[in-house]
Design a protein around this nucleic acid. Structure first.
Length: 332
RNA sequence: AGGCCCGUAGCUCAAUUGGCAGAGCAUCCGACUCCAAAUCGGAAGGUCGGGGGUUCGAGCCCCUCCGGGCCUGCCA
């Protein structure tokens, strides 16, 4: 049984429904099962080129998104990474127990570095900081998507190597993998929904209704259905979204109904799209309304700073232990 | 510290001896479609990395700065 959960999200752009159904929804429900620490990872964000003017507002905007989705600052700790700078101190120490070979095998580094002409050392050491983020709170559970499993495995390795070299101290964090929820791009259902692919590929959680309708209506389907044939990727993806949305609002009938129609070859895709859109909005509308209220209340910064104070307390205690174990500094 | 190469639309790249800045993909609108995709038709998109100079005229030549890549050296 996991006692302390840690997870982070980058403050880049807007949250999309892939983030929401894939990760954030789990963050919210995990609040009922464990002590949760959620972090907006702005140090990670600067591994690639970002506009300083936008970064700070993006962090606050992401905080609003998270709060609107149901992260509860009374029960959980929500803060901005760089407000607790000891993360980077632990990163250096971890960097010294991380092998170069392990890092160079990270597929996400290879993917990202291929797409850029300037490849920063920070992009390379990214997974070390991630390990520090998790372990500075000695978290034992980390909700992750499939793409992050490899990084978490490295975190476990780092914990193990630190422990064997300096003494048993860090837990090996376990991945918490919740059911499926790998939402694909609407415009290209063979690749995962992401912000970087472009505007038409994702649906933002806070996006205006008219815009969401348009994107759902424009989703790629297929040329027509033979009765009994398997779903094409685009149709399967729409069903996935529909199913997740229905589940969130407690609608148990609709998916089965449409699936029967599909099996009989009677399902019109326009109906599938319209229904998916309606259910999706049932989920997103309350989130959007909550977000508007939170934004108007104007106290996000205080909330985040209060979160940072709570996080600092835990992180600082860890660092006192770590410095002692490693033999750093002058004070015992 | 030295040497070589590069910077043009969101992306990949063209542009003859210095002579009207273009194409493909992506984007937007329309046609087709149950809805879309594909396809077809149309539209939009640019401080040619910045600044200075030569010239009737500079994306192209010269100077300078910025950014990026590769190589050598030095220090740790």
């Amino acid at each position: 049984m996991v006692k302390r959960v840690f997870s982070g999200i980058q403050p880049t752009g807007t949250m999309h429904i892939g983030n929401y159904f894939g990760a954030i929804r789990n963050w919210v429900s995990l609040q009922n099962e464990a002590d949760c620490i959620y972090c907006i990872v702005d140090y990670h964000a600067i591994t690639i080129d970002v506009d300083p003017k936008e970064l700070r507002t993006a962090s606050q905007s992401m905080a609003l998104d998270l709060l609107a989705c149901g992260i509860d600052p009374e029960r959980s700790i929500l803060f901005v990474q760089s407000d607790v700078p000891t993360h980077t101190e632990l990163e250096w120490i971890f960097g010294c127990v991380t092998s170069y070979g392990d890092l160079s095998r990270m597929t996400q580094f290879k993917d990202k570095s291929d797409k850029q002409e300037f490849v920063s050392a920070g992009l390379f050491t990214y997974p070390i900081l991630q390990a520090a983020d998790i372990l500075i709170y000695r978290a034992d559970g980390v909700p992750v998507g499939e793409d992050q499993v490899q990084h978490l495995e490295l975190s476990r390795r780092i914990a193990r190597r630190f422990n064997s070299r300096f003494g048993e101290y860090f837990p090996e964090p376990e991945p918490i993998v919740r059911k499926g929820a790998r939402i694909m791009s609407l415009a290209d259902p063979t690749s995962k929904m992401s912000k970087s692919a472009g505007e038409v590929h994702y649906v933002g959680v806070m996006e205006p209704e008219t815009s969401i309708r348009k994107k759902v209506r424009s989703a790629v389907t297929d040329v027509g259905l033979e009765v009994g044939a398997a779903m094409s990727p685009g149709v399967a993806n729409l069903f996935e979204i529909l199913e997740l949305a229905c589940e969130s609002v407690g609608d148990t009938a609709t998916v089965a109904e449409l699936k029967t129609e599909f099996a009989d070859g009677k399902l019109l895709y326009s109906r599938l799209k319209d229904t998916t859109f309606e259910r999706l909005m049932d989920v997103l509308r309350p989130i959007q309304e909550r977000r508007a209220k939170l934004a108007a209340s104007g106290n996000v910064v205080e909330l985040l700073q209060a979160g940072a104070r709570k996080a600092t307390k835990i992180a600082s205690a860890t660092m006192v232990d770590v410095r002692r174990l490693v033999g750093l500094g002058t004070s015992a």
